[in-house]
Design a protein around this nucleic acid. Sequence first.
DNA 1: ATTTTATGCTCAT
DNA 2: TGAGCCTAAAATG
Length: 291
Amino acid sequence: MPEGHTLRRLADDLTAAFAGSLVHVGSPQGRFAADAAVVDGTRLLGADSAGKHLFVELEHDHLIHVHLGLIGGFEVHTEVGAVPPPVGQVRLRIVRADAGAYADLRGATQCELIGPAARDEVMARLGPDPLRADADPDRAWRRIKASHRPIGDLLMDQAVLAGVGNVYRAEVLFRQRIHPLRPGRTLRVGQWRALWADLVELMHEGVRLNRIDTVRPEHTPEAMGRDARTDDHGGEVYAYRRTGQPCLVCGTPIRTEVLATRNSFWCPRCQPRFRSRAVSSSQPPAREPRT
DNA sequence: ATTTTATGCTCAT
DNA sequence: TGAGCCTAAAATG
């Protein structure tokens, strides 16, 4: 589930459900039990996210720092009549004192009670987050334009840019027609500005829809008369996990290679590795995608 | 019933 | 580069 949009959405949902309320905090599974007891029965003030980190703020300078890792999930339930018994491994459960809302955390790689100083340290290690209004994209650009590392690697480095994961990496590079293996230093500033602007837009849309959807109107299943995607992540995408399937723009099979320890996906025709000698820099001629 | 996989990251070698 | 960590669901036998 988790790229930056998931955590921002969670911060918003937790704030809406619990901010200002007294809460019961527990750890049905037990692994967070001691820390949970410290803040149990206190007031929850709100939640905030930075990159893929989530901070639940409580009274007395207590913060619960959560990182979902690859497989973690945090479900927020509101307007419930009664709070059901926990299912599976619930590391952290927050229940509003009036029992009108509860949230269950499972599978997280990190769930710890910290103070404001530790929160500031976590945030100081992060690059600019496209979802935060206070982000400074130039900080990321200074590193990218000086780096020999592939842009597909740099985009996933949370110290360069915070919140982008494997799906947004594949999708924003497809949309901006940039090959993932191109060294950062070969990008032009205009390409970087377009990448950043697109991430800001895509990730805000991700928060709104609570999923990653990146295809433009002309490439939706309805517009193209193709089947909608049915796998677990749900959203419509151009490249992510579409290895061997025809590119939605030109029909060329999508390619995969491991980059920054993760599968990277791209269209070899729409995202040429080297600048073509051909005069035309426009979109490749649209062909009928194979069926 | 067992293995594999997943939108992530850290540490050791 | 590889192992480990967290959990659940999908894929495989």
